[in-house]
Nucleic acid binder design. Sequence first.
RNA 1: CGAGUCCGCCAGGCAGCCGCGGCAGGAGCGCACCUGUCGAGGAAAGUCCGAGCUCCGCAGAGCAGGGUGCCGGGUAACACCCGGUCGGGGUAACCCGAAGGAGAGUGCCACAGAAAAGACACAGCCGGUGGCAACACCGGCGAAGGUGAAAUGGUGGUGGUAAGAGCCCACCAGCGGCCGGGAGACCGGCCGGCUAGGUAAACCCCACUCGGAGCAAGACCUAAUAGGAGGACGAAUCGGCUGGCUCGGCCGGUCCUCGGGUACGGUCGCUUGAGUCGUCGGGCAACCGGCGAACCAGACGGAUGGCUGCCCCUCCGGUGCGUGCCGGCUUCGGCCGGCGAGGCGGAGGACAGAACUCGGCUUAUCGGCGGACUCGCUCU
RNA 2: GGCGAGUUAGCCAAGUGGUAAGGCAGAGGUCUGCAAAACCUCCACCGCGGGUUCGAAUCCCGCACUCGCCU
Length: 113
Amino acid sequence: MNPRQRLLKTADFDRALRSGRRAGSAYLALFVSDNEFGRPRVGFAVSRKLGNAVVRNRIKRRLRELVRPLAQSTEAGRDVVIVARPSAIEAEYARLRDDLSALWSQSVTRRTP
RNA sequence: CGAGUCCGCCAGGCAGCCGCGGCAGGAGCGCACCUGUCGAGGAAAGUCCGAGCUCCGCAGAGCAGGGUGCCGGGUAACACCCGGUCGGGGUAACCCGAAGGAGAGUGCCACAGAAAAGACACAGCCGGUGGCAACACCGGCGAAGGUGAAAUGGUGGUGGUAAGAGCCCACCAGCGGCCGGGAGACCGGCCGGCUAGGUAAACCCCACUCGGAGCAAGACCUAAUAGGAGGACGAAUCGGCUGGCUCGGCCGGUCCUCGGGUACGGUCGCUUGAGUCGUCGGGCAACCGGCGAACCAGACGGAUGGCUGCCCCUCCGGUGCGUGCCGGCUUCGGCCGGCGAGGCGGAGGACAGAACUCGGCUUAUCGGCGGACUCGCUCU
RNA sequence: GGCGAGUUAGCCAAGUGGUAAGGCAGAGGUCUGCAAAACCUCCACCGCGGGUUCGAAUCCCGCACUCGCCU
């Protein structure tokens, strides 16, 4: 994922987490807010409580692979923070994929009211 | 064959599809595209030591405080490593040890016990005097006294005595002296007088050693307002700053010169190094030296991967199939039971992710490979 | 990434070498017609593992966990 698609600043994270729309499942929680770039930006939040560095990195790498096709096919300007929940550690890849695309279409692709 | 010890090494492999970061080159540029190339570990971990590097009044003296602690060597340095000494454990290979000083001082040693360090008292033994006796007084005696973790060296003695005792003798431990060996820790022998509780991971003494912080150190660049830096001269007092404190040091005032602190910003620091590999030589070894070769991660919401298939290793399950061995039955066609391997299905393949860089230590870890050695059993 | 502090009963905690105070909560009992209050009793592998010591919550070493500070 190239830097244009990533969410970088702490302020952007805070904006999405505080004022954004939310969608959740057993594995993940998404926080979405609007941006002015006309393309989505994605950031990940994986708590230290989920495991050591190896576990956390594996979660982020799998989520990054899953979110890449979704982000490339989305035209809307959205900042998305994906928070991993504890059950995501042992989740099967196909289940995680279905779960994320469902949450994505719920919260990101939907028009702003 | 079984059990075990030490040393070294590895950390699943291959393929397909889709991706990421650095560097170099390319068509039109720092973002986007293409090509090439490189891209986690033995512990990258914990941050427990030691260094490099950077800044801080340039680290100077004293006090306080910390660290280390058998000897010799290695090293940039170390609390690490190697070789040895002593002590402990193991049948052995081998392993473990914060291993200076309690004959400088202070403190503490609960309970129990006569007594816990001071030498006696208490209890007791022996002799004498008094008394019918219980006992009292005087003198001698030692470590013996149901304790305790520890009791005035220990054990033994038809030695010795009024009773006893290193009082005497033998051996062992300890101390001192002399001789011999060793670079030293220390070891061996002889002689002597008979002897000094433990605790220093309690304070402490001795020897050596340590300034403080840390790459979020620190340097530079771009905007406005407030303001700074360097040099010279002068500093009596006072005030302020500064590793914990003191001294010392620095700042304050005047003049001259220069020019912009600070961002959730950018660039540098940032990876060529006490490094790696090969080879030769020195050394028991740790390690050192010579020669040669290659350049081998540098991210910054943080890359080094995701998914699928096959193979490999381990474990489990099941008996439809072919097949091997053993036992039993047989009308010699086979049948029944058990075991092993293959094919089949399933599960598992560790601990763990660079963040300034090295040298160590410690901790985590499914397993596999190679070498040297010890003990037991068996065979030749 | 770096630096620092702390773990004692369910909760708050004292203790700094010699049987681990106290308060709240909980359980049982006395009292009462029943309760409350009061009184009595009970409730601790001192985070874990080693070591020093006769003896460790305390001293030393190693781990684990929790909480802070620095951009």
